[in-house]
Design a protein around this nucleic acid. Sequence first.
DNA 1: AAATATTGTTTCTTTGTGAAACAATAGTAA
DNA 2: TTACTATTGTTTCACAAAGAAACAATATTT
Lengths: 236, 236
Amino acid sequence: MVFQADDYIPNISYDSVIFGFSGEKLKILILEYHNTGTFALPGGFIRKDEDLDRAVKRGLSERTGIDQIYLEQFHTFGALHRSNPAVMRRIFEGQGIVMKDHWIFDRFISVGYYALINYDTVSPKPDALSDSIGWYNFDSLPELMQDHNQIVEKALEHLRNHLDQKLLSFNLLPEFFTMKDLQQVYEAILGENQNRANFQRKMLGLGILERHEKLYSGGSHKAPFLYSFRKVKSDS
Amino acid sequence: MVFQADDYIPNISYDSVIFGFSGEKLKILILEYHNTGTFALPGGFIRKDEDLDRAVKRGLSERTGIDQIYLEQFHTFGALHRSNPAVMRRIFEGQGIVMKDHWIFDRFISVGYYALINYDTVSPKPDALSDSIGWYNFDSLPELMQDHNQIVEKALEHLRNHLDQKLLSFNLLPEFFTMKDLQQVYEAILGENQNRANFQRKMLGLGILERHEKLYSGGSHKAPFLYSFRKVKSDS
DNA sequence: AAATATTGTTTCTTTGTGAAACAATAGTAA
DNA sequence: TTACTATTGTTTCACAAAGAAACAATATTT
């Protein structure tokens, strides 16, 4: 996996913040690079002959094994010193690759994307550059390379502001879920508790939920309804 | 003004949507290129040794004569065929500059910014590449080059969604203004009428307005108060 | 001095929200 | 079987916010 200079647009990259939800906590997908102890967001480059959006989908699929996810662009990071050639160099050397000059050591302006995926049904796989990929609790992330911690902050901010509008939460849950599941997703993202009765009223009022049989058999109490999201339009 | 390849990051540009308010209508600043009848948003490139944000401020100042404005990044446009080398070529030829190969004819991914400025106190000046710069009503824009019409749409969408949060409107008004002025700005941006009494309540409730003497002497009726925005924090 | 237009405020009604209480029910323990 | 318990779905109540209309104030014109 040595990037050919002719294939990619120089100086532009993307970084992605992949959110998952464990049933209790909000989590983020983080890569660790071989032999360097460097943690990073999954990112990549754009080919000269592909759309930016497509590049992100392709790259993410290559690096994490995850396909068909809803991606949302949220900000482009262009500070002069956000890239650090020394760190990139160490990552490649950690793999035994030594390159003197390479376009990958240049300055990069990076477009940030975030996605929400179902924590339970996805099993991410690390690519050749990385020796591990894993979920980390949002509130106890390791220190990430370059400005990636800031990128995560900004992604969450954007997600919070658009949670209601876009009902992004549907990506974090299995097909069928209870009202409590949904509320826990909201609470994990917003970082604050929601009123149970009002939350239910609001969600049902949106008219986007379909109520199903009570199939859940958890504890010694009344069984909750199961819900699914009403399909409206597919996102390409 | 021939851009040197060594000075600029290739394949990345910015485009800016500069909103103004005439006292009645929402307007946007548009450039027209020499001899080509091509209309475009003010845009530019990023130097290899400057922050993205700074580059936009600098470039905008060079191309329009406008300084010290509040800029907000809203989206990055990266579709494969959004750039059109043929159009760029015509613009340069229209100026008598003929170049066979130039990095400027490459594909560009463009970062979109918008700004809000005071229509009355600003007199934009076109740069060497353009023969005119002018205000156009948002609802009757000419056809713009490449995907610039889409960029404008997206900017307005973003502005509408964030109007209340950031009180961006203060940039569109002179230092002193009436409550009616403020309401008209909101109505122009949101595209719908606001209730007079409630608008006043809401704005005063925000605690960001300072009320001054009634100095206005317009028509045959009660004089309105003048207001100004309470200064909180300056934006670098 | 009356008329008029517009502004600032108040009042009334409707709607939405937060908190608590009530009702229903699937399992558990006696 | 029957009481008990935990949790869910719904309702009620108090209060705040929002929409609409009425009322009061006032600078200018007639």
